[in-house]
């Protein structure tokens, strides 16, 4: 088989198929009014993008996308739905202005990609600045086979400190927003018991 179909053709075919599936999922998310189905489809969307990351050889990103995007976010969105309700109100306002904004921004982004270096170009600025030092250093100075880990936890540990802080802040935010009613409930429970 591989004699007839080159691997790069297969890779392109898989990529195109995945992008088509992504677009179909996105359109379905837009058109559905049942929020339960919408949450499930966004989970599928995350899983599809995780597969795309695997095609790009970014397994660490794919792993994060699959566990966070497809896994825990779906559960958290379902938990949110149990608070807000399962139906979406269909808005009657016109969609022309949002469509125009999307077209203009999307066109500008597409126009911008014309100036980008080719995918995987070894002479691209991103691959010439600090990346060679990181690739050499993570073998010599850090001795960690997974370069992603050495970049994430050592070279760029300030960023990761900030990211962990973001997650901590998100947790604090949820506690502050949803915690006050819980206290009230607990207080009424106590008075109910004593009465």
């Amino acid at each position: 088989m591989t004699d007839f179909i080159s691997t790069s053709f297969m890779e392109h075919a898989v990529t195109i198929l995945l992008f088509v599936l992504l677009a179909v999922t996105a359109i379905a998310v837009l058109r559905l009014t049942n929020l339960f189905a919408v949450v499930m489809l966004t989970g599928a969307y995350s899983l599809l993008s995780a597969v795309l990351f695997v095609v790009l050889d970014a397994v660490d990103v794919a792993f994060t996308e699959a566990s966070v995007g497809a896994g825990i976010s779906t559960v958290l969105m379902l938990a949110t739905l149990s608070v807000t309700g399962w139906r979406r109100k269909v808005s009657s306002s016109s969609n022309i202005v949002p469509l125009l904004v999307t077209l203009v921004v999307g066109g500008a982004l597409l126009y911008g990609t014309a100036d980008m270096p080719d995918f995987g170009d070894p002479n691209a600025p991103a691959n010439l600045h600090v990346a060679p030092d990181y690739i050499k250093g993570s073998e010599e100075d850090i001795d960690v086979p997974n370069i992603v880990t050495s970049v994430l936890a050592s070279y760029r540990s300030f960023d990761t400190l900030g990211e962990t802080g973001v997650i901590f802040t998100a947790g604090i935010g949820v506690m502050l927003l949803l915690g006050s009613r819980r206290k009230k409930k607990a207080a009424t429970d106590k008075t109910g018991e004593t009465a």
Binding site: I72, L76, A79
Partner: peptide, 16 residues
């Protein structure tokens, strides 16, 4: 622990 906590708060909130 943040993920468990967020789920906990939403689930607790949903059954109030």
């Amino acid at each position: 622990s943040t993920m468990i906590t967020i789920f906990n708060y939403f689930a607790e909130h949903g059954r109030l």
